[in-house]
Design a protein around this nucleic acid. Sequence first.
DNA 1: GTAGGAAATGGGAACGTTCCCCATCAGCGA
DNA 2: TCGCTGATGGGGAACGTTCCCATTTCCTAC
Lengths: 337, 337
Amino acid sequence: MSKPRQPTIKDVARLAGVSKTTVGRVVNGEDLRVAEKTRARVLAAIEMLGYERNIVASSLRTDQTLMVALSIPDIMNPFWPEVARGVQDTCEAQGYTVALLNSDWDAGRELVHLQTVRRNRFDGLVLNPIRIANAELRALNTPTVLLGSDDDYPDFDSVGSDSVGAVDTALEHLIALGHRRIGLIAGISQRSRPDTRYHCYIDMHQRHNLPFDPALVVRCPYSQAEGAAAMRRLLAGAAPPTAVLAGNDLLAIGALIAAKQAGVAIPGDLSIIGIDDIDASSTTSPPLTTVAKPKYEIGVRAATLLLERLRGDRPEVPRKVLLRGELQVRETTAPPG
Amino acid sequence: MSKPRQPTIKDVARLAGVSKTTVGRVVNGEDLRVAEKTRARVLAAIEMLGYERNIVASSLRTDQTLMVALSIPDIMNPFWPEVARGVQDTCEAQGYTVALLNSDWDAGRELVHLQTVRRNRFDGLVLNPIRIANAELRALNTPTVLLGSDDDYPDFDSVGSDSVGAVDTALEHLIALGHRRIGLIAGISQRSRPDTRYHCYIDMHQRHNLPFDPALVVRCPYSQAEGAAAMRRLLAGAAPPTAVLAGNDLLAIGALIAAKQAGVAIPGDLSIIGIDDIDASSTTSPPLTTVAKPKYEIGVRAATLLLERLRGDRPEVPRKVLLRGELQVRETTAPPG
DNA sequence: GTAGGAAATGGGAACGTTCCCCATCAGCGA
DNA sequence: TCGCTGATGGGGAACGTTCCCATTTCCTAC
């Protein structure tokens, strides 16, 4: 394999008998002043040589890489691929390429990803932050849209599902069914900020005059195995809950499996509800009741906001989009036995 | 937001009182001849300015972008994120950034992705081909490793799970249980090439002297919904099978759901077996028997082969890695009723 | 036929690196 | 004192674009 150097704009120019400037004009499409006949000659030359514009060179000159980074915490949670798909579809439609960076909940890797964004001069970033703070993100000096609904990032556009609303919806559902001892399997992200889901849980208890029992709250990382462990801990308690809300479906599915293994009838003895509505949730046994998040749309909206900024829009105040989740009643919830 | 232009190597040089060449030497780390004292001065200047090497410029000069593309057909199938994780972990460890491109089984998008690779001068490509042919791939002139086990790409390294072996394993399992009428839900990729899984199926029938009934073979795209539809078609046949092998777990899960909805007892009336072992397969009801593929390792191996080539290795003959799947017996298979 | 101006095209610097090659300098032996 | 060596540092071209500005061509109206 020798290296038959890719043809450059100069090669095209020579073949077409015009200057590289003219070729550039043709390549960039904008019907800048170039005569039809010349254009045709140039296009023929491009075709003949198989010329392909070198984006690297172009980027250096224009400070535009046509690359966008998408940093997510956990590619193994089916929630994120669907968000990613929304982002990619939207960005690719505008000619941007999306680099998917997976940080595995690791703050160190998040930092590395930010470095990548800077060094490679990505045009933009869509990020579900793990530990990074508002100020550091500002220092990045790159158009950024956040995925999430917390308000720790006042300077940035963000798109999130309404977590508060989702927890409320889920709890309302359980309470309406008659549950009063409701467990919470709350996920832990590396962020130290107070957990939204937990706070909603507390609020809800106050609002409905339910007694709050700290023993009903378990925290663990967001994974199926951890969800199972958490459920075992809840079941081992002195007075187990009659219903459990899990921070996401992965946790809920883990909890469901652990409960069944422990001989607990679902939903007879125990109701379980999740949040997200990933594909697997509809195929568990029994199928999981959950609050469905508009995953694909989250991605689309985030990408749209980013693209607007890349196009030059500078809204004077960051936009905060909150998409509503929708209760998906399946078969893991029922009135307490 | 003004644009406080990122500092360049020149700014650093000026501040440190050396030439840009010297700064370059320090940045590139290779302890080329530069005195300790000078190096310290330069590092201090870098620190002070927050200088960050511009990879775009560097790429133009060196023809190295430190970017690798990973093109997969379906990010929504949990199989692929796990492969992707293997690729990313491995590449990132070597300083490469991985851009994940999702083609959604669309040959057009695959073409676009190839164009992206060329235009952006990615250093390498890991690809699960949809419709692209060996020759076109060669014309790309970029180090490439294929994901898959077919032999339509003699010129390229490839890493695949042993599909033949997986189908054999699955069918052996069913036959050992006593099944003789075995249905096949074969996935369709856009590729026109003969489907491996189908051929193994035929071979296996001959080897075991089983009658081959074309009515037992259904083909459909790789998705859960299509798997369900395929199962309904099989069940509607004159003489339905006593066991079904699905081309992957997504299809199998769809089939499982459809069968249950139709009132068919699993595995009492019908055995179902899948291929892949995605996470959701262990949480279906009953849990799905399947042939587990080493997804993460596939990614790691593919990335490793690619990195070797990027490092300059030029094995005289393309390397074909085939990883074995492992039968994961759960509860959807049993002797025919 | 010519001036004037619009339309089309070309020349060349610049983007921020890398890297070849040359300059400088200290130290040292003859 | 000279010249040599090895260590260190610098100058400047090159990578392939884009884009400002200058130049040429062409057309129209007088």
